[in-house]
């Protein structure tokens, strides 16, 4: 069962958490990717895009676009998954290699640029758990 009620809930909830990352130290990592990252969600349907804001070191590190507004930016990397997989990923509960192997997550573009950020995401997972706990709703 998806932790998100509908697309609006996903865009507000996960998108809201991504907003907090734009001013976090980890937010600067997007400059190492070298382009925009599009997350495509199913169950519920949704789209969130991270678009880096130069120069590196400045804040916010990136913009968070939601839904139809994501079409205005060409992504470098795309990750496609269902809402539950996304929720579990940001809780730190997903083994990425296993998720890719089971096609729970599909990636297009230069995956290596995103993968090298993974070791730096460990501090982010508990912050997402706290964000979810503080949010009203089923998740």
């Amino acid at each position: 069962m998806s932790p998100f009620r509908d697309s609006e809930d996903l865009h507000q909830s996960l998108g809201g958490f991504f907003d907090t990352l734009t001013t976090s130290p980890e937010g600067q990592l997007i400059h190492r990717v070298g382009g925009s990252i599009l997350f495509i969600f199913h169950h519920p349907e949704g789209r969130i895009l991270w678009s880096p804001l130069p120069p590196p070191g400045s804040w916010p590190a990136f913009r968070v676009l939601r839904g139809a507004e994501t079409a205005s930016v060409e992504p470098l990397l795309t990750f496609e998954q269902d809402g539950e997989t996304a929720h579990r990923f940001w809780l730190g509960e997903i083994d990425l290699a296993q998720a890719l192997a089971r096609q729970q997550l599909r990636a297009t573009g230069p995956l290596s640029r995103a993968m090298k950020l993974l070791p730096h995401l460990d501090p982010v997972y508990p912050r997402y758990a706290a964000w979810v706990a503080a949010r009203p709703g089923p998740a």
Binding site: P110, L111, K116
Partner: peptide
């Protein structure tokens, strides 16, 4: 090296 097997550096 090429990033096809993405691991931390």
């Amino acid at each position: 090296v090429s990033g096809d097997l993405p691991l931390p550096t």
